[in-house]
Every structure is written in C-alpha cells, then in structure tokens.
Nucleic acid binder design. Sequence first.
DNA 1: TATTGTTATACTCTATAACTATA
DNA 2: TATAGTTATAGAGTATAACAATA
Lengths: 152, 152
Amino acid sequence: MKSAEIAAGLSVPLEGMLGFELRRTATAVAAALSDALEPLDLRTSEASLLLILAENPGCTQSDVCRALRAQPANMVPIVNRLMGAGLIEREPIEGRAMSLFLTRKGKALHERVKKAMAQHEARIVKRLSKEQQKQVVEALRIICKDACCTDS
Amino acid sequence: MKSAEIAAGLSVPLEGMLGFELRRTATAVAAALSDALEPLDLRTSEASLLLILAENPGCTQSDVCRALRAQPANMVPIVNRLMGAGLIEREPIEGRAMSLFLTRKGKALHERVKKAMAQHEARIVKRLSKEQQKQVVEALRIICKDACCTDS
DNA sequence: TATTGTTATACTCTATAACTATA
DNA sequence: TATAGTTATAGAGTATAACAATA
C-alpha cells in the first residue's frame, strides 16, 4: 500500500523502477539544495565551482569541466556571474587558459557554502545509516558507469 | 585513487557526497533513457504517460499529475503531442475533466515502450544484486521524503 | 466556488556547432 | 594544429501566475 497510489488512485508502473525513483529523488534533492543556497544568492552550479576553487586554487575552466563532466560552453555564464559578483578572479597563464582563484569575498562566501552544503547533505541522509550511505553512493557510481558508457 | 580525480588532476570535494552523486547518476541515466526512446520518437515524459495510460485507461490529466507529482501546466504539451501523433485520445467526462485513453496505435507503441524501458532498467542495474537494487530504491525513497518536506 | 485544464512565461541544466585566440 | 575559451542557440524539465470552463 503505497501512499502515492492511494492518493492518486492510479497504479503507477514506474514506481519501484530504479530509473524513475532516481530521477524523482534527484529532482527533490536538487530543489532542496537550491532552496538552501538561495539565501547566498548562488545556484547549485555556482556553489560547486566555489567549492572546487577553494580546494584547487589556480586551476583552469577546462580542469573544472573535466572534473564535473560539464561542457565548457556551460561554464562561461557561471564564471562570468561569479566574477561579476566579485567572488572569483582570473589570470591568464598559458595559451588561452585562465587560472581561477577565489577573491577574499569568494573565500568568505565559500565558508558559508560549505556550511550550507553540509547541512543539506546531513538533512537528506539523516535517516540512513553510515553503512547505507556508503552502499548507496557505491551503487550510484556503478549505475552511473553502466548508464554512461556504451559498453556493448 | 579515483579515476575522475586522476584524469582532471583536481580534488573534487563533491565526490562522495550523496547529493552530488545522485545528480550525476540521475543525469546519466536520464540521458541513457532518452537515447533508448529516441527510435520511438518519444521523450521520457511522453513514454511515462503511455505507461500510465496503459495501466489506467480513462484517467484524467490531473490524476496523472498527482501520480507523477507534475504540474498540470506541464502536462499540456505532452498530451497535445501524443494526441497529434495519434497515440492517445480524450473524452470529456465531468466538469472540464478529460478522460484519457490509448488509441490502437498508442497501445502498439506502448508495447515497444515497455520493452525499451525494461531493457534500459536492466542495463543500469545489471551490476547490482536484487538485494542491492531493493536497498537503493528504499534509500532513494527515504531521501526523497526528507528532501521534499520541510519536516522541521 | 472549487476543480480542471490552458496559456504564457521563465529559469535551470544540458548539449551542439561554429567561432576566436594562443602556443 | 591542438587546446582553451566563447558565442549563440536549442531542447528538456520544472515552476508560477493568470485565465477559461464547468459542475
């Protein structure tokens, strides 16, 4: 007796399928994170960049792209917005490559981002044991690999 | 030694966080499903509607919305496209409510959707035991609930 | 008046193609 | 030529507000 089925009176063949539950949960979690970051006036992608730059000062945009498996084109507006907000700065290094750093303001905000992220994470895993968390992350990585590659 | 870190040369503080792995995996899985449905000229949302209508002939759009936790406004283009393709039809029932059905063509395509969905699902869980699958789905549901509600 | 459906709109993430600049 | 970054654009999902139609 699943509550969703009762409420809607419908049989939902998708319930219980991993792909469907995955999407539903990821959407809910993303929305929650978005809410948590709103007071900081940051989007998820922007907050991720701050976290990465804090741990990897001086790395380039393409470094970040590879790390996040993002498209270089999609990094541009993110970097631009953070630069506009005075949170990060760039220095040319080699070729067209740009080295990225947090400004003092960026470092200060990063501390708040870290806190917000940790709270968010704690909230979504609060009813899972450490062991369960580890298992889920491991399973997600396996699934991700099998979904990504056309491994015959 | 995680491969992503080696490749990029970056330390990615997000790796291992449930929220991040969730988003990454969900994105990859969604892309894979999208590819799997492309030969049928269906998007994920459209395929989901076919599945639901096959099991709940005669239900209304708002029934579907509640079942999928979707916004009514977002159902309109989906329903329109499937009607335009001759896959579903509607009958007025009560108030403004419309009863939705699969056409013969829709039923035929639904069979192919079911097969494609099953293959997709099999692909993404192929390296997980039944037990693991169950655990992951259960964990996802718990996470989803805790992310959704502002449960103090 | 409450429910159902519709329109219009906007934001985010993701993706691609075509381009510029530099070693 | 290969790499890094940029521009423009497009598609898909999700969200809200305002509206129309019907019991």
